[in-house]
C-alpha cells in the first residue's frame, strides 16, 4: 500500500510539468524549496526537541552569500554555491555554540535573537546589502549545460535537489546518530549517563540542519533571482516552524506537507484576501489549537482507528 502510494507520488511529480501550465510548475518548485527548508528545521524541532525560531538565518545567509559573491566578486555559480554553503555551515557552527548554551525556550529565544541580529544588519548595512531594496540582477546557474531559466528545467532541478536533501535527512534520522539525537530529545539525562555527549550530538544536528537550510536558501535565491531582508525575518522562520507543526513534527513527510499547505494558503488566499498577515496570525492560532500534533500523525491516528474496525 505504502509502496503504491510512493510510486504514484513519483509518477505524479515527474508528469506534473507536462500536465499543467507554468504557474503551477513554479508553484510546486516553490513548494520543493519550502519543503527542504522545513525538513531541515524539523531535524531540530521534531527529532532533536530543539525549537529554533531563527532558522531563516541559514536560508537568508546562504542566499545573501551566493548573491554577494556573484555580484561583488563576479565569481561563477560553480564557486559561489560551495562558498555560500561553506559560509552558512560555518555560521551554523558558531550559532550552535551560542544557542546551545540553553535548551527549550531559552534556546528558542537565543535563536530568535541571533536571527533578528542578522535581519537588522541586512536592513541597515545598505552599502553591502542594499538594505530594503534587496539585491537585484542575480542569475540562475547553468547545470550540466541545462538552462535553469526555463521553468520546467528549474522544476526538475529543484525536484532532484529536494529528493536528495530528503534522502540525506532521512538517512541521518535512520542512522545510529539519528537514534541518539532522538534519545537526547526524549531522555537527555539518561543519554548522558549512557556515555553520550548530549551537547555534541545537538551541535552536530544543529550544523547539519543549518547546512540543509543553506541548500534551500541557494534554491530560493536561484528561483527568485532576487534577495530581500524579509528572507531573514522572523516571519520566514515562523512560517517554516508552522509548516513543521502543521504537517507533524518528527515525521519525514510532515514538513513537506506542511510547507505545501502554507504555500498554497499564501498563494491562493492572499489572492482573495488582502490581509495576509492577519490571516497568517489566525492560521497560527488555529493550527496550534485544533491540530496540535500535526496533520500526518493526525491522519495516521484516524487511519489506525479505521483499519482496526
Amino acid at each position: 500500500m505504502k509502496k503504491i502510494a510512493a510510486l504514484l507520488l513519483i509518477i505524479a511529480l515527474l508528469a506534473w510539468p507536462f500536465a499543467v501550465g507554468e504557474f503551477y510548475v513554479n508553484l510546486v518548485s516553490q513548494i520543493f524549496i519550502a519543503a527542504i527548508f522545513a525538513a531541515s528545521l524539523n531535524l531540530l524541532v521534531g527529532y532533536g526537541g530543539l525549537p529554533s525560531l531563527g532558522h531563516a538565518s541559514f536560508l537568508g545567509v546562504a542566499a545573501y552569500l551566493s548573491a554577494l559573491i556573484s555580484l561583488r566578486w563576479g565569481l561563477d555559480h560553480s564557486l559561489s554555491a560551495p562558498l555560500a554553503l561553506a559560509g552558512t555551515t560555518l555560521m551554523a557552527g558558531l550559532f550552535g555554540l551560542i544557542a546551545l548554551r540553553a535548551t527549550g525556550l531559552g534556546f528558542l529565544m537565543l535563536t530568535l535573537a541571533l536571527s533578528q541580529v542578522l535581519w537588522g544588519t541586512a536592513n541597515r548595512w545598505v552599502a553591502l546589502t542594499e538594505g530594503d531594496n534587496g539585491l537585484r540582477g542575480l542569475t540562475r546557474p547553468q547545470v550540466f549545460g541545462l538552462n535553469l531559466d526555463d521553468s520546467t528545467t528549474f522544476y526538475f532541478f529543484a525536484l532532484v535537489v529536494a529528493a536528495f536533501s530528503f534522502w540525506m535527512i532521512a538517512r541521518l534520522v535512520a542512522s545510529p546518530f539519528g537514534a541518539a539525537l532522538q534519545g537526547t530529545r526524549d531522555q537527555a539525562r539518561r543519554m548522558s549517563t549512557l556515555g553520550h555527549n548530549v551537547w555534541l550530538i545537538r551541535w552536530v544536528a544543529f550544523v547539519y540542519a543549518g547546512f540543509w537550510g543553506g541548500v534551500s536558501g541557494l534554491l530560493f535565491v536561484y528561483y527568485h533571482k532576487y534577495i530581500h531582508p524579509a528572507s531573514l525575518s522572523l516571519t520566514n522562520s515562523a512560517e517554516a516552524m508552522l509548516s513543521v507543526i502543521a504537517g507533524g513534527a518528527g515525521t519525514l513527510a510532515g514538513p513537506a506537507i506542511g510547507a505545501a499547505i502554507i504555500l498554497l494558503l499564501k498563494n491562493y488566499v492572499s489572492a482573495y484576501v488582502e490581509r495576509w498577515t492577519m490571516l497568517l496570525g489566525f492560521v497560527f492560532v488555529a493550527i496550534v489549537v485544533f491540530m496540535p500534533d500535526g496533520l500526518v500523525p493526525g491522519v495516521k491516528r484516524l487511519w489506525a482507528r479505521w483499519s482496526r474496525r
Binding site: 524541532v45 525549537p51 525560531l53 525556550l105 528558542l108 522572523l234 516571519t235 515562523a238 516552524m241 508552522l242 507543526i245 498577515t277 492577519m278 497568517l280 496570525g281 489566525f282 492560521v283 497560527f284 492560532v285 493550527i287 496550534v288 489549537v289 496540535p292
Partner: peptide
C-alpha cells in the same frame, strides 16, 4: 512550543 506560536500569531493579528 504551541504557546509560543499562538503568541506569535496574535502578534501578527
Amino acid at each position: 512550543l504551541g504557546q509560543v506560536l499562538v503568541t506569535l500569531g496574535f502578534a501578527y493579528i
